[in-house]
Amino acid sequence: MTTATADATALRARQDKGRQAAQNREKWAQARTYISAAVVLVWCLAPAYWMVVTAFREVGFTYDTSILPTHITLDNFATAFDTSFGNRFGQALLNSVFIGGVVTAVSLLIGVFAAYALARLNFKGKFLVLGFILGASMFPGVALITPLFQLFTNIGWMGTYQALIIPNISFVLPLTVYTMTSFFREMPWELEESARVDGCTQGQAFRKVIMPLAAPAIFTTAILAFISSWNEFLIASQLSSDATQPVTVAIANFAGAQPNQIPYTAIMAAGTIVTIPLVILVLVFQRKIVAGLTAGAVK
């Protein structure tokens, strides 16, 4: 064996060793990723899972701490809708849908024009308007509640639907405008002009080109708007009545048969009912929603 070949063999061995180490490192990194991902998954889902498991557990086993579902029953869902202890959960669900629906519709109807202007037109004071709208979305609810409380008391609007809808617009409308603005900014508007060149009228170009492109953006914004209205608690807790209260207030005030006993299983059932539609919506439109959520912050 010559020294040259010995050197070559040694070199190859070293290279192999290096490659092996790199592969090991790669494997180890991969394993760490999976472990971390599992931790994130458990951290995010475990409490929500606990809510669902408790919702299906018999009242007598409220504090059962076995991780898997035990003593399964549907009674809690019936209790959640039971009105004999003064809870009006069914009504509250309808109220939330109604309030959320009106707030979303109004915000989209008004906001779509503003978003178009902010995304497409050049005008003086654009930064100012955008700053104002962003500032409005960060506005603390308590700063509104005091004057509105007095105003609505004076004009007899306390506990009415409009007393809940109008303040909600104060934070849903800004959210709608800036989410749609960033969606509109990224739309291929050149297509409108191409359609015009190809002989479409302006109306046709709008209907056949712009509308189908804008629809997903508007739909996503609608979901985000609806969720934020659905989740509102502060204003509703002060300005609603028993008849108009939304689900968040109904759940917060959920009463049991005995005043000193909290009906956890029924509350968890109510919470599950309130949450499941949102979670399904969010999971189905995951990509779009994440894009909408982060639209304001990056780009």
Binding site: L41, W50, F233, V247, I251, I267, V279, Q286
Partner: peptide, 23 residues
């Protein structure tokens, strides 16, 4: 994982508060 992180975000805060009160 990306879908799972949206779950806590989607649960209304009022429900979150009751849930953690129970936990």
């Amino acid at each position: 994982v990306r879908a799972a992180v949206l779950v806590p975000w989607a649960i209304p805060t009022a429900v979150t508060a009751k849930l953690w009160f129970f936990i």
